[in-house]
């Protein structure tokens, strides 16, 4: 079954007087449980695509369905709820809240679900442990290394047990050794949970490790390659 279905998606941005199609009539389906890499030059529309898939943005034209559901009639709060429950985001610059410690950062998505604080803390600690971060649970982000921060962010993305993980250049701010660690983390996560994971990257070597590589250029898919592993 396809988890994600994009049907003739167009995204137009108005820049000054000029209109620019950042995504041009894009069609794409992604099966549940895939590990997908999206590559492409800077400005090719990768983040724009991810924002649409992640329900942070709406297409100008075309239809997007997640698990067969479309979103025209949903308001901002409904979309927030779906993001909260279905999607885990990992960003290039981690986007942890600097005022909260690692544990509190991981608990944050659960804060927006009405669940028992004890249970929330348990879940957060569970994921911190999986990320090998139990010992830094009480530390603030600025006390952590980049790799640690990104792992906290990954724990935060996973703590609500979403079916879809969207990672926008998750290794973009890390050195190559740490990048490999983070990538392996995604790969083993995928192997263990069969979650759908979409990784946006500039790095071809990272893309090689994924099951499917989609390449964008100027808002169009110029390559879509399934790889058997």
């Amino acid at each position: 079954m396809s988890l994600i279905k994009l049907d003739h998606i167009v995204k137009t941005y108005q820049v000054g007087h000029e209109k620019r199609d950042v995504l041009k009539d894009l069609c794409l389906t992604i099966k549940e449980g895939s590990l997908v890499a999206i590559i492409g030059a800077s400005g090719s529309g990768k983040t724009t695509l991810m924002n649409i898939i992640g329900l942070l943005d709406q297409p100008t034209l075309g239809e997007y369905q997640l698990r067969g559901q479309s979103f025209h009639n949903l308001n901002a709060d409904d979309l927030a709820r779906i993001r909260n429950q279905e999607i885990g985001f990992v960003f290039q610059f981690f986007y942890l809240l600097p005022r909260l410690n690692a544990l509190e950062n991981v608990m944050l998505p659960l804060q927006y679900q009405n669940i028992d604080p004890k249970l929330a803390q348990e879940k957060a600690l569970h994921w911190l442990e999986k990320m090998g971060l139990t010992h830094v649970a009480q530390q603030k982000p600025q006390q952590l290394s980049g790799g640690q921060q990104q792992r906290v962010a990954i724990a935060r993305a996973l703590v609500t047990n979403p079916s879809l993980i969207l990672a926008d250049e998750p290794t973009g701010a890390l050195d190559s050794k740490t990048s490999d660690d983070i990538l392996n983390l995604f790969i083993s996560l995928h192997a263990h949970t069969q979650k759908t994971i979409i990784i946006i990257t500039h790095n071809p070597q990272i893309a090689e490790q994924c099951h499917r590589i989609i390449q964008l250029q100027d808002g169009e898919i110029i390559r879509d390659e399934e790889r058997q592993k």
Binding site: A80, R81, L108, T160
Partner: peptide, 16 residues
């Protein structure tokens, strides 16, 4: 602003 953006992205409602 960034903090607010992050919270909204990971599922905070406007009311939150």
């Amino acid at each position: 602003r960034r903090e607010i953006g992050i919270r909204l992205a990971i599922g905070a409602r406007r009311a939150d």
